[in-house]
Design a binder for these strands. Sequence first.
RNA 1: GGCGACGUAGCCAAGUGGUAAGGCAGAGGACUGCAAAUCCUCUAUUCCCCGGUUCGAAUCCGGGCGUCGCCUCCA
Length: 452
Amino acid sequence: MSIRVHNTQSGRIETLTPIHPGEVRIYVCGPTVYDELHIGNFRCFVIFDTLARFLRQSGYEVTKVQNFTDVDDRIIAKAKAEKISLRQVADRYIDLYHRDARRLGIDEQIEPRATDHVPQMVAHIERLIELGHAYVADGSVYFSVQSFPAYGQLSHQPVDERQAGARVEVEAGKRAPEDFALWKSEGDPEFSWPSPWGWGRPGWHIECSVMSADHLGVPFDIHGGGVDLLFPHHENEIAQSTPLVEQSPARIWMHNGMLTMSGEKMSKSLKNTFRVSDLLDRYPPEAIRLFLLSAHYRSPLAAELEGLDQAKAALRRIENVLRRLRPMAAPSEAKEGWDRFLGCLADDFNTAEAQGVLFETVRQANTALDNGAKPGALGRYLAGIEAMCALLGVTPKSADENADDGVAELVLARETARASRDFALADRLRQQLKDLGVVVEDTAQGSRWYRA
RNA sequence: GGCGACGUAGCCAAGUGGUAAGGCAGAGGACUGCAAAUCCUCUAUUCCCCGGUUCGAAUCCGGGCGUCGCCUCCA
C-alpha cells in the first residue's frame, strides 16, 4: 500500500518514496529546553512518534531523530539568573522531557543536543562563507538571504512582501533585514565556543541543519515540526542547507497544526498552557494520546479539559471491550479492521478517521460477544483492536490482578453468596471490594473484577 | 498590509462531486437480584451566509461574514 502525506513544500499530498529503499529517515524539530514543556509541544512529538510506528508497521526501517536545542537566549538567561551552567539548565529540562515522554509512550529515538555539534556547525558555516552565502560582521556570521533565490519557497512567501507591517529586527552588521544569524558573537566564555570569528554561539536555525545531516545524511525523507516553525525556522534551514548539498535537505516537509486554548494557540507567552505533568495527574497517558490523535494532524485542535474527559471516557470503552474479549478469544493471526485502519493512516496519516475504524471494530466486537460468537471470531476482533491500540499507543494498562491482597477470596465469597441468593451479603462484599478500589461485574461466565 | 488554514449536531471530530464516519454527552428500549458492561433505536433533511457550475455539491467556482496561524521567541 502506498503511503501518501502532505508536503508543505509542494502544497500537495505526495506518495512517500523513500530515498533508501525500505528505510525512512525522519527528523523532527525537538524542544528548546529552557522550561518545562506543555501539552501543545507534545502534540507534535506524539504525532511523529505515531507516524514512525505506522511506518515501522508498514515494513519500513525507521531512523528518527528528534533534537534538543540546548543553547538559546532564554536558557542563558536562566543560567545567569540561577548562577548555574548552561548544561545544568538544559539537563534539568531534558530530564523533565524524558519523564513526560516516557509516560506518554514516545519510542526510543536518536536525540542529539545542539551543543554537542558545535564544531560541525562551525564547519558548516565556514563552507557557507566560502560559497558566498554568508558574511562575517563584528564576530557574528549572517546568512545572506539575497544569495539564495529560492528563499521563500517553503512558506510560499516572497521576501519583499514579507516585510510590510512586520517588525524588522535591527541588528548592527546585517546587510539586509531579512538576513539571519548563523553565529552570534558572545563575550562571556561561559556561554560561548571558540570559532574562526572569535568566541560565540550558534544562531537559532543552524543546529537543525547540522544535526539532521550528521545523524541522517542529506537528503533525508521527512522533516517534521509544528506549523509555527514553518517560517522562519524551516525556511532558513533550507536556505542554509541547500547550498552545501545542492538540494533541499528533506524530501517531504510535514507540519502539524497548533493546539489551541480558548481559540488561541497554546503558548508560553500567552500563558494558556497545560503542563503535561499536571495533565498526567488527572488523565491516563493513553487518554492524552487518544485525545492528541483525535483530530487530523494538520488541523488545529482545541485543548479543552472537556476534550480530555471525552477521551478518557472513550478509553474506558476500549478497556471494557478488551476485558470482555481477553478471556473468551482464541489467538488469531487475522485482525479485524486492521487493513482499513492502516488505509486511513496511509491517506495523509488520518488518525481521526483511523480512530473511527477502531471504535467501529469495538462495537462489532461487543455485538459478537453479546451474540455468543466463537473464540475464533472473537480472536480476530481482539487481535485487531490490540494492534490498532498498540500502533496509536493507547493500549490501556491492565491492572495487576495477581496481587495477593485477598481480593480473589472476597470475589469468590461474593459469588458463593450470590449462588445461595444471599444478596445482602453479596452487596456487603461488593461494597468491601469497592472500598479496595475493585469493581466487580457479574456476567454469564461468572464474576469478573478489575481495579478501577 | 502580505501569506496560509479553517467554519460539519449540545461538545470533539472524519468526510473534497453521488446523497452526512467515529467518540463524548442526552432520551427511550432490551438485558439485569443490585451494580456495571453491552446491544438496539432516536438526537445535523443538512454541513457559516448568498449566488453560480452540475442530472446531482458539505465537497467545485465567485462574493460575503467569522475564527485562527505565520510574517517577532514558539511544537
